[in-house]
């Protein structure tokens, strides 16, 4: 994937005429092919009843705070808007559509598992990785704890164990990779959802399903599959009964984020030609004789 992008950049750097035409093409093509068949989840917030069973299942799956189910039946918690943290990879928040304030709806948030994740691009040692089958996974052994991923994430998802002095980790939804999704297992939260507001499948299927639902129930949904295009697409996608502006999901452009810096990086360090050229140039200047003229002109 990155190879393709680099190659493309070489061409672009060489020929600025074809620059704009080539770029939109690149935006489409350079996502890994597997992304289309990769695992994804569709969250239907119109079906979600805010029971927080997904939180409970996640908590149990990852041994986070080991609270029993009763702790998750507490609905008063919806009074505040919570964020995922190192003790809860997913949280459910309550929202109200201003035009229909009597009926709340719920949004489960967790790592979106972007198709081209900013955190993966940011990571200095490749401790974060986007697997071909969908999940964005973290390798604590590699991590140096620089927290650039936290800065970079457009959804503000990675959470840090600030209180751990010796072995702090970046914590976020793992997409339950450890449950072996390839063998027909589904993430713990998807399995637990009583109303089946969460649907697990391949990304392409789910996009089709989402649009079919919107078409079938135009009154129930806004015509927007959140995550289909946001930041180049995410593996977790949402349907909602009202504008996503009401929820905590941020309004994001369809452009992938990593090219912002990767294009710069790969242009400046293209086969190390620019640095080596600079080195050569400075070497030439240094090797040439001292410039007496300049010496004289110097200010006294």
């Amino acid at each position: 994937m990155s190879l393709g992008r680099r190659d493309f950049l070489g061409l672009a750097a060489a020929s600025s005429v074809t620059l704009l035409a080539g770029k939109s093409l690149a935006n489409e093509q350079q996502l890994p092919k597997e992304c289309k068949d990769a695992c994804a989840v569709l969250v239907d917030t119109a079906v979600c009843i805010g029971c927080r069973k997904c939180e409970w299942a996640c908590n149990r799956q990852h041994n986070l705070s080991n609270q029993d189910m009763a702790a998750f039946d507490d609905k008063t918690i919806f009074k505040i808007q919570r964020r995922p943290d190192d003790k809860a990879y997913t949280v459910v928040n309550e929202f109200r559509d201003p035009s229909n304030p009597e009926k709340p709806y719920y949004t489960k948030v967790q790592c979106m598992h972007c198709l081209d994740p900013a955190c993966v691009s940011a990571c200095i040692v490749g401790a974060l990785e986007k697997l071909p089958n969908g999940p964005v996974v973290y390798d604590a052994w590699k991590c140096i704890g620089c927290r650039y991923c936290i800065v970079a994430c457009p959804f503000q998802i990675p959470a840090y164990e600030y209180d751990n002095a010796l072995t702090p980790q970046v914590r976020k939804c793992t997409f339950c990779t450890e449950r072996n999704l390839a063998e027909g297992n589904v993430p713990a939260c998807v399995e637990a959802c009583p109303n089946e507001a969460l649907t697990f499948g391949t990304r392409d299927d789910l996009i089709g399903l989402a649009h079919a639902r919107i078409k079938a129930y135009p009154d129930r949904y806004v015509d927007h599959v959140y995550g289909e295009h946001e930041v180049g697409g995410t593996s977790w996608m949402y349907l909602a009964p009202a504008d996503f502006k009401n929820t905590e999901l941020p309004e994001l452009p369809p452009d992938r984020i990593p090219p912002n810096t990767e294009n710069i990086q790969h242009a400046v360090f293209k086969w190390f030609v620019p640095p080596l050229a600079l080195y050569g140039l400075l070497g030439l200047i240094m090797a040439s004789k001292p410039d007496k003229e300049n010496e004289q002109e110097a200010e006294k």
């Binding site: 939109s24 935006n27 990767e262 242009a267």
Partner: peptide, 26 residues
């Protein structure tokens, strides 16, 4: 000659700036 390295770097970076500009794919 004095400014050549600076000019070279400016050009490279400007180019990369153009490359990384954003547009919405269709």
């Amino acid at each position: 000659k004095k400014y050549m390295p600076a000019v070279a770097v400016v050009m490279v970076l400007l180019l990369s700036y153009l490359v990384s500009g954003s547009d919405i794919s269709q």
